[in-house]
């Protein structure tokens, strides 16, 4: 309970579909069992790339601000948006820089490759070890529940609408079995030249 990863609570999940990806998070911010805010999104958009961060809330803010700065600097130097796979390596090396005093976050990256349009998702541990996945990535205090949901609901080549339904059902059912996550959700569906963001209400308890 006093692990820095489970003080504030929160959950995040990303999924691959057919020519699309989805990433979703809950909205709770708590102090142990007490809920402080029900409007604390954990997904951040940097150009065409999406970063989900769960873990210690202070580090969620610090790390998201840090990558906003780094991605902006990249765009100024390169005069183009950062690609998801490049960003993943940036996340990895930035986290490993703090190998012996880590940020207590479990990041998730999702996006479409700007050249090939191929879906890209990956997850990390708090010191930057990348977990490349072909199907889905989960993180946060509801990660076990999310593993169970995703492993049973997900199937290959889902279209954007079916992918939205799948990721939403997976996240909502998972956070309902975790006392530290929930209180609404954000869901992003990323297609070529189109991003749809939806707000889910979910259970308020």
């Amino acid at each position: 309970m006093s692990s820095p990863f489970s003080i504030n609570g929160g959950a995040c999940v990303a999924m691959v579909g057919k020519d699309c990806v989805a990433i979703a998070c809950d909205l709770r911010l708590g102090l142990q069992a007490l809920t402080v805010s029900n409007n604390f999104p954990k997904i951040f958009q940097y150009g065409d790339v999406f970063l989900g961060l769960t873990g210690l809330a202070t580090d969620v803010s610090t790390v998201s601000d840090l990558f906003r700065y780094k991605v902006n600097m990249y765009r100024l130097r390169e005069e183009r948006n950062i690609a998801p796979s490049t960003f993943a390596n940036l996340v990895s090396s930035s986290l490993y820089e703090r190998r012996f005093g880590p940020y207590f976050v479990s990041p998730v990256v999702a996006g479409l490759d700007p050249k090939s349009g191929r879906p890209f998702i990956c997850g990390f541990d708090s010191i930057g070890c990348i977990d490349f996945a072909k199907d889905f990535i989960v993180s946060g205090t509801a990660s076990e529940q999310l593993f169970g949901m995703c492993e049973s609901l997900w199937e290959p080549d889902l279209g954007p609408d079916d992918l939205f339904e799948t990721i939403s059902q997976a996240l909502l059912s998972a956070v309902d079995r975790d006392a530290l996550s929930g209180w609404g959700a954000h869901v992003y569906i990323v297609e070529k030249d189109k991003v749809t963001k939806r707000l889910l209400k979910g259970r308020q308890d």
Partner: peptide
């Protein structure tokens, strides 16, 4: 051991929670 993986699936598919 896998109760936390299976239980939300059951909520969703047996009791139709969130549907």
């Amino acid at each position: 051991a896998a109760a936390s993986l299976i239980m939300p699936f059951l909520d969703n598919q047996v009791n139709f929670k969130n549907q």
